Simulated scan of single mutants.
Amino acid sequence: MGRAGSVRIPYAFRVWLWIAGAVALQAVTSLSLLSLATLVVVGAAIAIDRARFVRLLRRIRWLLLSIVILFGWMTPGTAIVPFWVGLMPTFEGLELAVLHGLRLLALVAWLIFWFAWLPIPEQPTALYRAFFPLVWFGVPLERFAVRLALILDGLDALAKAPVRLRDWRHLPRWLEGEDDAAESCRQKAGLR
């Protein structure tokens, strides 16, 4: 039980709490309520692990921009500037873009809770216990739990990895594991 008087929440229950929070963030349709929930979750994520949250946010910045462009300019509705209808985003599209952008931001912040609540060694066991009813549907639970834990571990490693690819020509070397392929090419060429 730990310290006297402290309550230890089982890891399987933490998995279900995290899933319930993620589903709740997706189910909110009110823009004001989602804004408030996002503000609370992002504030808590920053308080828990600011560096990891900022790294994850930097990784999704282009996805957030594409959401704004896709919904803002591709959703039919009333144009913001009426005399440039073909070039302007719509009010309805921007509202949808903000709604989906807030959802994505809230889920990325909610992911910080996953890493804070479940230490890496405990994840496969917790996932196995939490998803035990899937055995009744013929799902190989051991494989499912281990694969899901490996995916989440890879996501954690990706969040910790430096983002240093500066030139697309160095992409193959960067994918092989070199953190800064462009810098190593310059050093090998004797430029620095």
Rank of each mutant, 00 (worst) to 15 (best):
F137I: 11
L175E: 08
L25D: 00
I48Q: 01
R14N: 04
P172N: 09
L150Q: 02
Q187I: 14
R103C: 02
I9W: 09
L191W: 15
F113G: 03
I120R: 13
L87M: 14
M1S: 14
W110H: 03
R3M: 13
P162A: 09
L34M: 02
L70I: 14
W168K: 11
V7N: 06
T75A: 04
V108F: 00
S6E: 11
A27D: 05
M74Y: 09
L158Y: 08
A182F: 06
W16I: 13
L118G: 03
E183V: 10
A109L: 03
F144T: 00
P89I: 03
T90I: 06
G154H: 07
A126V: 00
I120L: 14
W117I: 01
I151M: 14
R8L: 09
L63R: 12
L31W: 11
E183S: 13
S184K: 14
W174N: 07
G93P: 01
F83W: 15
V85H: 15
L155R: 05
R52Y: 05
D179A: 15
V146E: 10
P10R: 06
E122W: 14
D49R: 04
I60R: 02
G101V: 02
L63S: 12
A47D: 04
D49V: 02
Y128A: 13
E92Y: 07
A149V: 09
A27K: 07
V98M: 13
L107K: 00
G72F: 05
L118F: 04
A97P: 01
S66L: 15
Q123Y: 01
T29W: 13
L155N: 08
R164Y: 06
W114D: 00
G190V: 07
V108S: 03
A51V: 15
H100V: 08
I69H: 06
V28R: 07
